[in-house]
Simulated scan of single mutants.
Amino acid sequence: MTTADPHLLTGAHALHALPDDERATFERHLADCEPCARETAELHATAARLGLAVATAPRPAMREEVLRRITAVRQQPPGPPAAPRRARAALRAHRLSRWTLAACLAAAAALGGTAVWQYERAEDAQRQARRAEQGTAEIAAVLAAPDATTRAAALGDGATGTVVVSRERDEAVFVASGMARPPAGKVYQLWYDDGGTMRSAGLMDPGRADQAVLMEGAVDGASAMGITVEPEGGSRRPTSDPVALMGLPT
């Protein structure tokens, strides 16, 4: 491990460029150094903004091309190597009967069902890709908005959070770094604080320590935001003490 001044490692931490031992030491330093925690959170948000600003969506024709190929390519069941052509012909002539025909019809029906199943899975994947693409584009739009303002805070245990607000778009994005996994069966839920009344702003991905989340709903008159630990699927109202409370930038 190097003896670098921890105050000089904020940029490297934001870009995930520290070795594991240095990262652990630096994150312990963050718990006691508010200026470094704030600067690290702001750099994480900036890195996210730069990354999402250059994100590109796949060409629209790709979806149709994938769907067309999935429905056109026939699934071949596993089996032994094919016999020579003459032997196969003799075997077909010898064994072709109503039972063989019935088996062929059953196989055709099974393959037809496989094609339908493949098509439905492709449709599901397409819908998921559209949602992901739309979410990424909306996050990028907020982060790149000319009026975007940010506020950063240390969340404890080395985690940092930054909220980015565009009043013109009436939207907010929460950028988290180093978030610990919630307990099993739990999820982090975001909230808008409307004068003391908490309004749900969506759920975070419990499997990701670093993420950017488009907060659900309009910022409207909210003056702050909070994070709580809730059961999977979220809650209508907070059921636990907040992990963090942050004022929204003006």
Rank of each mutant, 00 (worst) to 15 (best):
T100V: 11
E216R: 14
V173S: 00
D21V: 01
S223F: 01
P182D: 07
E232R: 12
D194M: 11
P81C: 08
M1Y: 02
D124N: 03
T10S: 13
A137W: 10
T197G: 08
A224Y: 01
A109G: 09
D210K: 08
D20M: 00
A106R: 13
P77M: 06
V142R: 00
A153K: 09
G135S: 14
A106I: 01
R131E: 15
M246F: 02
D147S: 01
A14D: 06
D193S: 05
G207H: 09
L190D: 00
V175Y: 02
V229R: 07
Q76K: 00
A115S: 10
R59A: 14
P80D: 04
R69F: 01
E168G: 00
A108S: 13
L101I: 09
A61F: 09
P81M: 01
L203E: 11
M225N: 02
E133T: 15
R181W: 00
S200K: 10
R49M: 03
L15D: 08
M179S: 08
R169G: 01
D157M: 10
W117M: 11
L248E: 07
E138S: 03
Q75N: 11
R74K: 10
G11T: 13
A82Y: 06
Q126G: 15
A57I: 12
D5E: 02
D21N: 02
L8R: 13
A144E: 06
Q76E: 09
A55K: 08
R169C: 07
E171Y: 01
P146M: 05
A14L: 06
E27N: 07
G202A: 05
G112D: 12
D124R: 12
R74Q: 14
A141I: 04
R49V: 04
P231I: 04
D170G: 01
A212K: 02
A12H: 11
A89L: 11
R59G: 08
D124G: 05
A12S: 10
T197H: 08
V165D: 08
E120H: 10
T160V: 13
A31Q: 05
E34C: 03
H16D: 14
A145I: 00
L67C: 06
M204Q: 11
D194R: 12
T3N: 11
L91E: 12
L143P: 09
R28C: 04
R63W: 07
R208N: 06
A93Q: 09
C36K: 07
D5V: 04
G161E: 03
E230V: 10
L203W: 10
A103C: 03
A129C: 04
S166V: 02
G135V: 13
G11E: 13
A218E: 06
V213P: 03
T3P: 04
P19S: 12
Y119G: 15
T25R: 15
E42A: 12
L105K: 12
A125L: 07
E232S: 13
S200P: 14
M179L: 14
S177V: 07
R95F: 01
T136P: 04
G233W: 09
T150Q: 04
M1A: 11
S97I: 08
Y192D: 07
A152N: 04
R59P: 05
V163R: 03
Q75R: 02
G217D: 03
Q128E: 10
L101S: 05
T56F: 10
E22Q: 02
L30M: 03
A83M: 08
A53S: 15
T197P: 02
A93E: 15
V73E: 15
A201D: 05
A132V: 09
G158V: 01
T160P: 01
G221R: 15
E64A: 15
L43F: 07
R236I: 00
